[in-house]
Nucleic acid binder design. Structure first.
Lengths: 351, 351
DNA sequence: ATGAAAGCGCTAACAC
DNA sequence: GTGTTAGCGCTTTCAT
């Protein structure tokens, strides 16, 4: 091992070894760096034998190409940024299992396509930070999970030509590309199912200020209309995606004496919380109140009673989000995509 | 806007705009690139007025420094790799909520320290891929979640001086740094609690081939010993962290007529699955069988009955893992760290 | 206080 | 088929 010179900026602290570079491999192989470069990228230009010899040497040395240098030269990176906005006030954790699941799906999809995934939490009020990922050349584009109320900000980012795809609902005059579940359908089938069970006073649990929830509420109304059943506004409960809020809201509703015989929660967490609160107050699920959740996380089938829920295709979502982004990067016009959802009926809503 | 030359390699496809660079800012500000560089890094060398003027200009132009170039020059990156090994055979999703939660904690900790987080799924049988992240200069170090049975492989990576920190149990002759919950303690307090409730035949649900589970089992034994209660080997059920496996294993146990009055599951998922299976077969929880889980995920408190569980400090874990890695990078010797766990008693295990 | 120039590790013309 | 060379966009001596 020749460890000749050691000029250049300060090296990384203790645990790090001098990083091998292409020149080292070239020297050891007795060829030039260009040949190594070509060999390692599988170029046809280099003699097959030489290529194999170099590849073997590189492997043996545990050499891997410096991606920073490569990307700088090539003017591109292979990193996709995944951004989950957080509420700066509470600085709270990513807590909803749905987001977390999504992450899993995205990680797989991104890896499969030969990219790496950079996960970034950014202040929801300052989504410009997402643009930084791209402006700095770190990532080629951004997948944003959590449309929330940031439609306008997202539009501004898209206007700046930031390659971005958002998980969420399609909105009028939207400049950015969305991929999302069919919320109208989801809300409708869940509600129709409850109506078909003879339920007539169905609580809707979710904040319709959020575009996705708003669509689900529309589905809820549509199902009522189709069945000729009136919607009761006092059953529309605008709670955020938080267990505590759901709990106290349901509690208040019960205390206030408003009657209801079903609950449609806009997430499994909301639905499960509702079930718990109902039981705590002596109400039987599903006999007295049927409950349907949304997202169909794995836990839905393992809770008690197993929770009926509108299944969102998380893996598929990951794939679609990534593919949409890559298409965007190729300069294609990418229309919003809507993914099929499906009601999975379990015991929480059926006799 | 002068858009002078456009030489150099192919530019990114359609959606991308020509990326602004320091030279542009310099030209617009009427100074040299060195001055811009200095101004943007807050150097004292540059005139405060100039500095502010340049900063304002950069902000206005939405300019951000090209991190690839910067890092290449500086010989370091600000990315921490987070690796979750997957089983190549099943190619399965990250499914356990605990892992996912951990991701949230890590994302926060990494962001707080001014790093970015690169999430990477690698084949569990080929953890060398984790080393690539560092060898390629992409990441400065790796946090690996999922020690599984890969102790030897991890040791090899550490022997290669890869800066790596692993979430898991401390093992003899371990070359790599671990951060983990106090599994011995967790197993002990959970078991002691059940014994204190008068339970005498406690099922242990978890695969002791995994180091963490093995420690928990030791705790289980220790608690028994301390209480002078015999351990029954037929109650030690080596199931992996999968709901289906747990379900069928519990089912078989019940079918086989082996008596038991409590279950200690090594994850909340396992415990919840057990509860469900028990109820399905007409056994009351907690009256006939008390159940305690592990991890204390948010869902534990919202399932029915609320699940007693050994709480793992997920946020704290993220912080400790990252801090350990950074210490490693500074060349410090970092001893394994063990985090306190705490039993949270809920209705699933108390009358 | 500011500028000129070298070079981080790589790829791709362009020579041979 | 292989080597030489010129940058990719930055930071940082070194000069002024």
């Amino acid at each position: 091992m020749t460890a000749e010179d050691n000029k250049g900026p300060a090296r990384q602290g203790g645990a790090a070894r001098r990083r091998l570079q292409m020149a080292d491999v070239a020297r050891l192989a007795g060829v030039s760096v260009s040949t190594v470069s070509r060999a390692l990228s599988g170029s046809e230009l280099v003699n097959p034998e030489t290529r194999e010899r170099i590849a073997a040497l590189a492997r043996e040395l545990n050499y891997s190409i410096n991606l920073g240098a490569k990307n700088l030269r090539l003017q591109r990176s292979h990193i996709i940024g995944v951004v989950i906005p957080y509420d700066a006030a509470s600085r709270q954790h990513i807590t909803d299992p749905f987001f977390l699941s999504m992450l899993g799906g995205l990680a797989d999809a991104i890896t499969d396509r030969g990219y790496d995934m950079l996960l970034s939490r950014v202040d929801a009020e300052n989504l410009d930070a997402a643009a930084r990922l791209v402006d700095s050349g770190l990532a080629v584009g951004v997948v944003l999970i959590g449309q929330w109320r940031h439609h306008d900000q997202l539009n501004m980012l898209a206007a700046r030509k930031l390659p971005i795809v958002v998980w969420g609902a399609q909105l009028p005059q939207q400049l950015y590309c969305t991929v999302g579940g069919d919320n109208l359908l989801g809300g409708r089938v869940a509600t129709a199912h409850l109506l078909a069970q003879g339920r007539r006073r169905i609580v809707f649990l979710g904040d319709p200020q959020l575009p996705e929830v708003e669509r689900r509420l529309e589905g809820y109304r549509a199902a009522h209309a189709a069945a000729g059943v009136a919607v009761h506004n006092e059953l529309l409960l605008a709670v955020p995606f938080e267990a505590d809020a759901a709990r106290s809201t349901i509690g208040q509703l019960m205390a206030s004496g408003v009657a209801f015989d079903a609950v449609l929660g806009c997430s499994d967490l909301l639905a499960i919380t509702a079930i718990r609160e109902l039981r705590e107050r002596g109400t039987e699920v599903p006999r007295e109140v049927a409950v349907v959740g949304y997202d169909d996380m794995p836990l839905a089938q393992y809770c008690d009673p197993p929770l009926s829920s509108v299944h969102q295709p998380v893996s598929e979502a990951g794939v679609q989000l990534v593919d949409a982004l890559l298409a965007l990067l190729r300069g294609e016009a990418v229309p919003p995509r809507m993914l099929d959802v499906e009601l999975v009926v379990r015991r929480s809503s059926s006799a």
